[in-house]
Nucleic acid binder design. Structure first.
Lengths: 145, 145
DNA sequence: CTTTTACCTATTAACATGGTAGGGAATAGG
DNA sequence: CCTATTCCCTACCATGTTAATAGGTAAAAG
């Protein structure tokens, strides 16, 4: 397992925001009902996204959340790295990497690094807008590779 | 995190076996010392690998473990799937996938499936022999992609 | 029949995941 | 000002996974 519910819910939340609010603020309550995710759990995710500047929150009546940019300007990689911390496949890579003393003789490190790049490039190559466009039944992913 | 110590140790163990024993059995004690991994922990990994037919174990004096095939006939994907269970990036994919009722309307599932294939193909495209050949200081991975 | 090795079955400490609970602070509308 | 609404913040918890350790049993060699 690599991507937890946090990251996956974050993506669904961003898509929901993109679909339902262009300029208006969207209440968490509505997103919670539409996406069938606990409002309390969503709160912890929006807090992270808001602090990182991905979304904008407004208090009080008429408040809620709103995207700060156009959907095509959010890469999935950015969303996942914000909510999951790092997409590193092993402990010796990524932001909170613990230095390994076998690093200089490690025969597998180059492999992990290559995969790390592969995964980052994969997620950075698609945006929230891309996921909106696709039809669930016959996604455009089916064709290529 | 995606690959735990179990899978990483398994790869190192297979490389060690490939390097030190062509026909002879290699004692776990020696591997443990060379790789600096607890012998007891290695035991739990060799049990899995042995049951799946990747390696062959022999009791008593002169016993130990041995590869069943040539190093170039073991893909890294096979080793990792054996020890880690599945390389699925999310809970709704892989061997122990929990059926999701949103599957038919899920906008992100095709993305996870594509990544899943990407990761499996990545690990299936390289063998134990490939990792043996490469020099740690300047691996051949550095060049491509 | 003793040594050496693999093999088997627990148990454990630490950590991550996936939430829940209970408020506080700000804003809008009256 | 007052009240409802909404985001925001801190703490807590139940469960599962990870990364081992412990203590044995079985088989093979000599």
């Amino acid at each position: 397992m690599m991507i937890s519910t946090r990251g996956r819910y974050a993506i669904r939340l961003m898509i929901d925001l993109a679909e339902h609010g262009t300029t208006d603020y969207i209440r968490l309550k509505d997103i919670s009902e539409r996406q069938d995710i606990s409002q309390k759990y969503l709160e912890s995710i929006t807090t992270t996204l808001s602090k990182s500047g991905l979304i904008d929150g407004a208090h009080g009546k008429g408040g809620g959340y709103r995207l700060n940019r156009a959907p095509e300007e959010y890469t999935i990689g950015e969303i996942l790295r914000t909510t999951e911390g790092s997409l590193a496949p092993v402990a010796c890579l990524g932001c909170d990497a613990k230095k390994c003393e076998r690093e200089s003789v490690c025969r597998t490190l180059p492999m992990w690094e290559k995969l790390y790049n592969l995964v980052n490039d994969f997620f950075d190559s698609m945006t929230v807008a891309d996921l909106m466009k696709q039809d669930a039944a016959a996604g455009f992913f089916g064709a290529s590779l």
